[in-house]
Design a protein around this nucleic acid. Structure first.
Lengths: 209, 209
DNA sequence: TGTCAATTGTCAGTCGCTGACACTAGCCTC
DNA sequence: GAGGCTAGTGTCAGCGACTGACAATTGACA
């Protein structure tokens, strides 16, 4: 994590500064109204340097989300084998939210992450990228699930289907939370549990029980 | 549909020409390697004119997809009320594929549409936009389903959940088809049916039956 | 201390996209 | 059927994201 050498530390500081300033400006002025020049100027580096740390303006917006997602995937991998696929995924999300602080606090406060997430959900260009990134993660999830169950993802469609259904629900809750009025971890946690509870019943042919 | 007046007809011809050339270039050279100038030059109009017909380069890529999606939504609205939510959606997709030709033939051949779809699926920037557009359609679907069942989308989570799960599966099949080697309507149709059949079983806690 | 290599800045250029303004060509009226 | 109106187009200038090339700087390490 921490690296010796003045050079390495300087790089780390520049990257952190760029990221913090970027998220700050994105969440206060809006993503589109913030130019890369503005970010670079605030950190007193050239625009070119910004693009050496982040391959695009978008990448900066997703830097924290990236860490959170990696954490979720790891949490799933560590779930006990007895749990069914859906339970394992459910418990993995909830678990990774419980410890979200540890993962990102060193870079930005949790509050900033929540605001960034809402910005992503409410900025069309970023929402689009977010959804595509999610499908990439889903591929990884499907492979993990298949492995747990001793299946081949390309033979048995169930891993991908289960992940797709699960992720669909997660996406809906993410959007509802983003549009909602309670931007807290508890709120999205509760929303997620409630919606996941309804997944199986919602697929029944007759909803009038 | 058809409008009198030389002016209107001229406009229609210009738009059609731009769209056809754009899709042709996109699918042969690739989306990113095609510049708007190139398209405009081929049709012998200025770049500015291109942007008067399509608000962005992306919009041209999705013009046909747009028609297909509208058709699917309409097909769902026309499904008999007896069908359960999932059956209604399933039958609506299959039905709208059966008549896809009628919807777009006037603009481009069906083959071109299939190639365009594959290009969208395999171009990251377009895939992202495609996914976002899909979520917009999902909102419309959820409202339709809720209406059919006499529910309020914001009260009962099941409409959104069912749509999310269904769409998740559709997305997976779309991707698999795009990566696959059989770019025909039959192929994606069969893939869709097979995957939808596995949706309910895939959510069972125990996959070893 | 001096050499080497990594980091950074500068500059020029591409591409998507927009606003402003002038010009051309259908359309409609008298 | 001439002339005015206006929708559609071209031209031009400019912004912002991004890239390649090259020169300048600054840690690292012998």
């Amino acid at each position: 994590m921490t690296v010796s050498g003045l050079r390495e530390r300087k790089k780390q500081r520049t990257r952190d500064a760029l990221l913090r300033v970027a998220l700050e400006l994105f969440t206060t002025q809006g993503y589109e109204r913030t130019t890369v020049d503005e970010i670079a100027d605030a950190v007193e580096v050239s625009q070119r340097t910004f693009f050496r740390y982040f391959s695009s303006k978008e990448e900066a917006a997703f830097a924290v989300q990236q860490m959170v997602e990696e954490r979720f995937v790891r949490a799933l991998a560590e779930r006990p084998a007895e749990e069914g696929p859906l339970d394992a995924m459910r418990n993995a999300v909830l678990a990774s939210w419980d410890t979200i602080g540890e993962a990102i606090m060193e870079v930005v406060p949790v509050e900033q992450y929540l605001r960034t997430f809402q910005m992503i959900e409410s900025t069309p260009a970023l929402l689009a990228v977010h959804l595509r990134r999610s499908t990439e993660m889903e591929e990884a999830l499907a492979r993990l699930i298949a492995e747990r169950e001793g299946l081949d993802v390309d033979e048995d469609p169930r891993p991908r289907i289960a992940v797709a259904a699960f992720s669909g629900v997660m996406r809906v809750t993410g959007q509802l939370w983003g549009r909602g009025t309670d931007p807290t971890l508890e709120a999205i946690r509760e929303l997620t549990e409630r919606y996941l509870d309804h997944l199986a019943p919602a697929l029944e042919p007759d909803w009038r029980n």
